[in-house]
Nucleic acid binder design. Structure first.
Lengths: 346, 346
DNA sequence: TCTTGTTTTGCATAGCTATGCAATCTGCAT
DNA sequence: ATGCAGATTGCATAGCTATGCAAAACAAGA
């Protein structure tokens, strides 16, 4: 980085003392003028605000952080924004945090290595808590997060540890529902398209699905499971692969919508097949693209707003229980949104 | 918000003095042990690091902010993350900033009102600069940003003002290229699908396009311009609208890819038309969906990595010129990515 | 006017680290 | 042993605001 360190040369920022001098009051008065419930007369407050406005003074929260030990900043650790689901989740989360008077210190993370150094940096800014939507759920990540000794709230993660709370969508239950839907549609050769192995939410969806298949008396063989990596391309390739291996499913449950879109495109462009006529497709996340006419994809909506609200509750609770490790879990039901990809074809 | 203010009850965080006591050295020594180029013997450093590790000490940057007046935090103001283009731009920006040793203080903004209060909050955290990808370009926003008296770097915005620098893609030039491409494909009834009126980047694309059409001797009438709002739905509706009004374009240049996808879907599903056979379509942004088989959309790639690099350059420069307002502009050429939607149909 | 109770104001300080400066130490040459 | 340069260390302080406490101002009733 090419940033100089000669802070000295900087024009000193306007301070509360400057304002005080101009308004003819004490520095405390200025501070109180900007504190909502402080004891100050209307006249003084007005004088102060006038002086502040003319000098362009803005209250400085940095010293307050030192005094209170609370920064009102929350570290938000994300990844995979190319998936619209995570992008809008982040958007909603940012709004909710700001409405709670908390600032978002954002970190994008590729791998566990980045995570460690990122957490170090965040901590040196004395963040109050961490919120993350990272789907990876390794033990080492859990350990790293627990060691921070500040509240951590995870989305769709199976991380467990002393300071870690979680908001999950009902992945297993959704898998069940998907299986039952396929049974109703007369599917005889179902396939499960899994996300990355370390994505525990994806795994839960798959387990629920298999569970539901067995319940309905449908075959659950090795070839029922297909490995993807949550991208459109992996969904596309998965279909080509199936056909190469002479497997012809008539129902595919995909761990996320991006892969499902890839599946639909591969079926249509490469195999000349249409859903739901030739195969029934179900996705997960209900991203905007699922509703696009080209896909018209049945999917599970995770109710991000609700999950974010729950996350904020957990966060408030954990922040309230100062320095006491808390581990709560909330489960939000995912809602099946039926579209053309599972319509009755008769 | 339901956060308590009794910071007093908190367990005091581990401080450099604690570490110093344990290591049997002065507090200064601890500080130096964590400063890369400080004068400290290897032995002392090791003692300090050992003590720090055993106590779980993390250097605290907050006091340093007070001393140096620099927080090494940059306010990132965003909106419209449902567009994958902005989502990945944010991702890349976050990575680049962190690599420069800067933290990202994220704010999501819906309207100008939110912006004002958001900027106030950011400033109270003493951010060093602002980076924004907001497409809106009103005078009042420019004024608000200029008043911060800290460097501002904008993406694809036409904001001008004392502290404001900009990185733009060559919107006008891309419009020209799109027009010429259509001319080569024998388009006779071109249409321009515009983004929100206040989006100046979109306007520039449209102007370039019209310019190019005239240059090629193609008709530029009122009905050449169609109003959208950058969403898939608005693209979809635009086509239906055209057909209702009995306008039958054979070439559509869309201000962004999301709308273009809507256009393609509407043509296919509602009109039974295919591109490029019945109409040539060109989008902008080159979002991942443009490459999806259902769309196979010709588009302009904005080279986000390059734009982000340029933005970082401008930022470094502006931060280097401490307290001196700077206004630079960089233009990065958008690259035409030709796909099926403009393939030669003969 | 005096008392009493309430509101408002100012003083003084805590909070933690980085850094200039002076003091001390180390190693080496004389 | 002495002197000296360079390396290392510690001392003391700045940076800005919020807040407890005491002082002051004010209001109102007697």
């Amino acid at each position: 980085m090419s940033l100089d360190k000669h802070g000295k040369a900087a024009i000193r920022a306007v301070t509360s003392t400057d304002v005080a001098r101009m308004a003819g009051v004490s520095q405390s008065a200025v501070s109180r003028a900007f504190s909502p419930d402080a004891s100050i007369s209307a006249r003084t407050k007005q004088k102060v605000l006038a002086a502040a406005a003319s000098l362009g003074y803005r209250p400085n929260r940095i010293p307050a952080i030192m005094l209170s030990g609370r920064s009102y900043m929350v570290g938000v650790v994300i990844g995979g924004l190319e998936n619209p689901f995570y992008a809008t989740a982040l958007e909603r989360l940012a709004v909710a945090l700001r409405e709670s008077g908390l600032q978002v210190l954002l970190v994008h993370v590729d791998d566990a290595l980045t995570l460690d150094s990122a957490l170090d940096q965040l901590l040196s800014y004395r963040i109050d808590a961490v919120v993350t939507s990272l789907a990876i759920g390794s033990k080492s990540v859990a350990r790293a997060l627990s060691q921070l000794r500040i509240p951590v709230v995870c989305f769709n993660s199976s991380l467990v540890g002393p300071w870690i709370s979680t908001v999950n969508s009902n992945n297993h239950g959704a898998g069940l529902v998907a299986a039952r839907l396929m049974a109703r549609r007369g599917v005889t050769h179902p396939v499960w398209l899994a996300g990355p192995v370390r994505n525990t939410a994806s795994r839960a969806r798959g387990e629920g699905f298999c569970h539901g298949l067995r319940e309905a008396g449908m075959p659950v063989a090795d070839l029922t499971r297909l490995q993807g990596d949550d991208t459109y391309d992996s969904g596309y390739k998965a279909v080509i692969d199936l056909w190469k291996r002479n497997i012809r499913p008539d129902g595919i449950f995909s761990s996320n919508d991006m892969m499902a879109c890839g599946v639909i495109d591969a079926l249509r462009e490469r195999m000349g097949l249409l859903c739901p006529r030739d195969a029934v497709i179900v996705g997960y996340d209900n991203i905007p693209q699922a509703a696009w006419r080209s896909f018209d994809l049945t999917s599970f909506d995770q109710h991000t707003e609700q999950m974010v609200t729950r996350a904020m509750d957990l966060l408030d609770e954990a922040l309230g229980a100062k320095d006491t490790p808390l581990s709560r879990t909330h489960v939000v039901d995912a809602q099946l949104i039926e579209r053309g990809s599972t319509a009755c074809s008769e």
